[in-house]
Structures are given as structure tokens and as C-alpha cells.
């Protein structure tokens, strides 16, 4: 009896951890449970996250909190227009003492990289980062160097229409699994925020909730979530809808559909289920697809929302 209980405990452990992490981070950013959950979903699904919002909405706080609770090595790069690729990936420097080139690793050699205001940097710098995101390795002076595992990028960007920005091209947007917006806090949350008006630096650092091994176990558990054919079909129907003639947005790529399945699994995992249900897909759909489909210029309803509403859950 005890053994079985232990077994259940072991299976359930990663889930409990997930909810613990969530509540942990939620202490840091008040009133943004959903966004935090989405962000965690993205990381557990091994995807990179793009946070788009106005300055001062807590983008950096969220990234910071997540990194700390997950116990990952954490680096931050503030992207500016004069940022060079070498500033991200690092470079070889000739060491006169040893008469050799020694590798000077850039901030990208960390488990979680926070790329702040990514759209302020020149396209060249952007692409250096984005290449690393895809390949999980960087090449410096012709030598390729493996990045630590797991490797996540949380990038923040200001809304595109802000002055002095280089919008990310569509092909690069596709590499982010999700894009979330944090949005203004509601009145209650803001009140609490103002009451304990301490800056990020004054806050006590969050203790790590999990170590690397546990994190990996969690991610393995996410991969093990059952995704039935019915769900796969639903995802395919959703994607097909965007590929049809007459659909005004961009069509979803196979990478997007893969991201959909993976993040739905992660969402189901956090929800405490061992199988994916359509509600999971719907929960993450907008975050996963909106930056790929594009937004309607003057529409009231986002295109991704339209897709969700028009595609039948069960094939008729």
C-alpha cells in the first residue's frame, strides 16, 4: 500500500511542483495568474517566449521570477540599437600572456536568457540570437559551441509602433513558441503593488523551487502527456483553416502546429491532467498563433480568436 502511495506521489510530484512554482511567481507579479501560467507552459514545452507590452508592465519581473524559481542560470541582455552580435554570443580574445586566443563567452551561455527589448537591436544582432534559439549552439570564429541545456530565451519587445524599433521578421517570430502580453494590472493588484513599493532590487530574491534534475523530470512528464488522435485532428483542422483561401492572415506553419500540440500538453500537465483536451488547445491557441497569423489592422476581434470560434471541435 505504501509503495503504491509513494508511486502516486512520485508521479504527482512534478505536477505539485508546477503549481508551487506558479504560486511562487504569482507572489511577484500580482493579478497575472493566467500570463504566468502561459509563460510556465511555454518553458515546460521547451519553447521560447516573447513578451510584448508597454515598458513598465512587469515583463522583466516575470522573466526574472521564472528563472529564479526554476533555479536556472540566468543572464540578461538589454538590446540596444548599437548592440553587436559578439556582445551576445561572445568572442575570442587574444591573450598576450598565453599567446593564444581564449574564448570569452557571451551572456547567451546561460540556461535562461532574458533578451530585453529585442526589437531595439539591429536585425543583425537579432538574428544572432534567433539562430542560437533554433540551433541551441553558437559559432564563434568558426567553432561551434553547445549551449547549456535546457536553454530558454525570454524576449521582451515593445509594441511595434514604438519609435526606434526594428520589428522582428515573420520568420523569426515563428521561432518563439508563444507571445504573451501582460496587460495593465487591475485596480486591486495595483493598489497592493503601490502599498509595498519596493523595487525589484529591494525584493528578497526568490529561492529556487526546483533543481535541474527536477526540471528535466517535469519536462519529460510534459512530453508523456497523452495527446489523442481527436486532438491531433483538431489541431490540424485549426491549422488547415488558416491555410484556406480567403483567410486574411498568415497561414500556420507545421512548426506552429507542433508548438500547439506541445504547449497544449504542457498546459494539460499544469492543469493536472494526463491527457490533452480541446480546452487546453483553446487555452494556448491565441498565445501560440497570434504572432504567426498576424493581427487584423482594424478589426475588433483578433484573427486567431476567429479561427478558434469557427473551427468545430469535433469533426462533423
Amino acid at each position: 500500500m505504501g509503495a503504491i502511495y509513494l508511486l502516486i506521489m512520485m508521479i504527482n510530484m512534478p505536477r505539485q511542483l508546477a503549481s508551487q512554482i506558479l504560486s511562487h511567481v504569482n507572489q511577484l507579479i500580482l493579478g497575472k495568474e493566467h500570463q504566468v501560467k502561459l509563460a510556465l507552459t511555454c518553458l515546460l514545452a521547451k519553447g521560447h517566449l516573447l513578451i510584448e507590452d508597454l515598458p513598465g508592465m512587469g515583463k522583466t519581473t516575470l522573466a526574472h521570477g521564472l528563472a529564479q524559481s526554476l533555479g536556472m542560470s540566468y543572464q540578461r541582455i538589454q538590446f540596444t540599437s548599437d548592440l553587436l552580435p559578439a556582445d551576445i554570443v561572445g568572442l575570442s580574445i587574444f591573450d598576450p600572456k598565453t599567446q593564444q586566443f581564449s574564448l570569452h563567452k557571451g551572456p547567451i551561455f546561460s540556461q535562461l536568457l532574458l533578451a530585453d527589448e529585442i526589437n531595439r537591436a539591429s536585425p543583425k544582432a537579432q538574428s544572432a540570437l534567433l539562430e542560437a534559439m533554433e540551433e541551441h549552439q553558437v559559432s564563434i570564429d568558426g567553432h561551434s559551441h553547445q549551449l547549456p541545456e535546457p536553454f530558454f530565451v525570454i524576449a521582451t519587445q515593445n509594441p511595434v509602433f514604438h519609435a526606434g524599433t526594428y520589428p522582428l521578421p515573420e520568420s523569426q517570430l515563428d521561432r518563439f513558441m508563444m507571445k504573451i502580453a501582460i496587460g495593465f494590472p487591475d485596480a486591486d493588484a495595483e493598489k497592493v503593488l503601490l502599498q509595498n513599493s519596493t523595487s525589484r532590487f529591494e525584493q528578497p530574491p526568490l529561492s529556487a523551487m526546483v533543481d535541474n534534475a527536477q526540471l528535466e523530470k517535469m519536462m519529460a512528464a510534459v512530453q508523456a502527456v497523452h495527446c489523442s488522435d481527436a486532438i491531433i485532428d483538431y489541431v490540424i483542422r485549426l491549422c488547415q483553416f488558416t491555410r484556406e483561401e480567403g483567410f486574411t492572415g498568415q497561414a500556420l506553419s507545421p512548426r506552429a502546429s507542433k508548438s500547439l500540440v506541445n504547449s497544449a500538453k504542457a498546459w494539460a500537465f499544469i492543469e493536472g491532467r494526463e491527457h490533452v483536451i480541446p480546452d487546453d488547445v483553446q487555452a494556448i491557441f491565441i498565445s501560440v498563433t497570434e504572432h504567426r497569423i498576424g493581427q487584423q489592422v482594424s478589426g475588433q476581434q483578433s484573427l486567431a480568436q476567429q479561427v478558434i470560434e469557427q473551427v468545430a471541435v469535433v469533426a462533423s
Binding site: 483536451i277 480541446p278 480546452d279 483553446q282 478558434i308 470560434e309 469557427q310 473551427v311 468545430a312 471541435v313
Partner: peptide, 9 residues
């Protein structure tokens, strides 16, 4: 009646 209605919802 909306087509996107899931059973749970």
C-alpha cells in the same frame, strides 16, 4: 451552439 464549444465548457 458555437462550433468551438468543447464538451467541458
Amino acid at each position: 451552439d458555437s462550433p468551438s464549444m468543447t464538451v467541458r465548457r
